[in-house]
Structures are given as C-alpha cells and as structure tokens.
Amino acid sequence: MTTIKLLKSASFGLAACAVSFAFTGQASAEDVIVGLVTKTEVNPFFVKMRQAAEAQAKEKGAKLIARAGKFDGDNEGQVAAIEDLISAGAKGILLTPNNSSGMLNIIKKARDAGVLVIALDTATDPADAVDATFATDNFEAGVQQGAYARKALGDKTPIVAMLDGTPGGTVDTFRHDGYLKGFGIAEGDPAIAGAAITNGAQDKGQIGMENLLSKNGDINAVYTINEPAAAGAYAALKSFGKEADVMLTSIDGGCAGVRDVKDGKIAATVMQFPYKMAAMGVDAVVEYAATGKKPSGFVNTGSFLITDKPVDGIESKDTAWGLKNCWGD
C-alpha cells in the first residue's frame, strides 16, 4: 500500500517535473507567434521546413510553435494543432495539409478569428480556402522530369513505368500528369508499360519496380514520385541487371536523392525548396502582424533539375550545386 502511494506521488512528481522542465523555452508575451503545422514530424522535407522556419522566426524576432500530425492522413491531429495555435494567439499559421479538403472548416475558423493561413507545399481544395499558397509547382516539376527523360532517351522507343505515390493525392496527380506532358505522351499511351503504387516508400518502390519488370523487361524509362521510391526502383533494376539501360528520374531534392544522382543511380532529380516555403511563410506572417498586409494566390517557390549528365535545351544544375542546396542529410 505504501509502495503504491509512494509510486503515485513519485510518478506525479516526475510527470510534473518533465512539464515544468519543458517550460524553459516559453515565449514572452510580445512575440509574434507563428504556427507551423506539418504533415508529420519525421519526414526530412518537413524537418528542413521546420528548421528553416525556426531560423527565420529567430531572425525576425518572432516565436515559432511547430506542430505536426502523427502520420500521413492525421487530419484530426492537424485540426487539433490549429485549434491549439488559435488559442495560443498565433498571428499566422503555416500549414501543409494532410488532406486537401479535410482542413476547410478549421481553416475558415482560423481566418474568421483573424489568423493568416498559408498553405505550404500542398494546396487546399479549393485553393482559395487559404490566404495564399507557397509551394512547388508540382505540375511544372513533373514536366521538367518528363522532358529530361524523353530528351535523354534519344532515339530509343520509349517504354515507360510509372511509380506513383498515393493515388488521389493532389501532389501525386500533378507530378504524374506533368511527367507525361513533359515526356510528350498522354495517359493511356501504349508507351506506358504499367504503374505501381509506392506511397513514396522505398520498399514499395522496389516491389512495384520488380513487378513491372516481370511484366515487361523492355522498360527503359521510369517515373518516380520521389527519391525514396527511386532508390527502391534502382535496387530492383540492379537485381534485374538493367540499371544501366533505364532512364530513372525523380523529384524532391533530398540530399540522399542528390547523392544518388551523383553516384549515377538516378539520372536526374527535380529539386524543390522547403526552406524557401517556410522562410517566405514566416516573413509573410511577420509582415501581416506589423502592417496587416496579406499575401494571396499561388506563389511558386521554384524547382530545379539536378543532373551531372545535362542534355541540350534543358536547363539544369550539377550535383555540386545540388548538394549545397539540398535538404535532409
């Protein structure tokens, strides 16, 4: 009985201790509070975004409160995060919505409460639910990937494999369609040997590629939704002894992906700039707090093709530049 009582008070103390210890980084009342709500905490893309936002907020004398969903699709977690941020008195919230329509109600609530809401990386549906969107033009990034792949293939007859992310996602659709546009073919073209769902994960990329190669061994161009999927595809190609014959391209600009380009595993990747989105977002909130001026519309934060094997007529940067500007580690 006494042990239990002791443990009870001990646990209590421990938990309270953890909380009060955590408070050492508390905001002072005058700081402009900028909220950042990302999809998850673990993805290096969002880690970079958060670091950049923190750095920018520090420079501007603002206070950043970063929150995230627990998993891809955690709408409830993101809604709760926004509610908490409104309660905390945030001036603006930077949001990468897990689901382009799931956040509409809470976004409206936030804006009604006078909070500036900016979508980063992923647009909402409808896009004007938020004040502004700072993101990569994913369609354009897809076009860059597709155009490079087509040019680099030369006069080979293209046989294409599509390693998609999660069907139904807006980013997924834009990149996929952009690639086809850049490649110069339409959906349903006989040049497309098949498609696989990877959820943007390496293991599923590998399995998907293996299955597509079993179906058609003559595949010579592979679209990938992101670099982990491309890394998986490369492993599959290698096990089939085809890594040298296939034009493997990707999108993202993670450092691991850029290194894969440098090592010749991926022919080219299209880099996007999460730190730009975050930094621009923080600036916009700080400006709004000071002047009441809101940004609006879609702001393209840009994308660059990274490759060490440039082709004529397509603008690109080499991996040395890429490694300087990539995100993650």
């Binding site: 239990i4 443990l7 009870k8 646990s11 421990l14 938990a15 953890a18 909380v19 955590a22 408070f23 980084g25 508390q26 905001a27 509070i33 905490e41 206070k63 409160i65 970063a66 929150r67 995230a68 709760a80 995060a81 509610e83 908490d84 941020l85 309660s87 905390a88």
Partner: peptide, 27 residues
C-alpha cells in the same frame, strides 16, 4: 493543448504520456 499554448515542442507530450502509461500499468 497546454504544451502548445506554452510554445513547447510536442515531443514532451509523448514523453509525459509515456511516463503516465508506464506508471499506471506499474501501479
């Protein structure tokens, strides 16, 4: 909610929740 209002990294929430779960089961 409280940690967010205080501007504290939400990983503290997981930590404290974890402690509470273990203590509850131990009790």
């Amino acid at each position: 909610n409280g940690l967010t209002l205080a501007g504290i990294d939400p990983l503290w929430q997981d930590l404290v929740t974890g402690i509470l779960v273990i203590v509850a089961v131990a009790l």
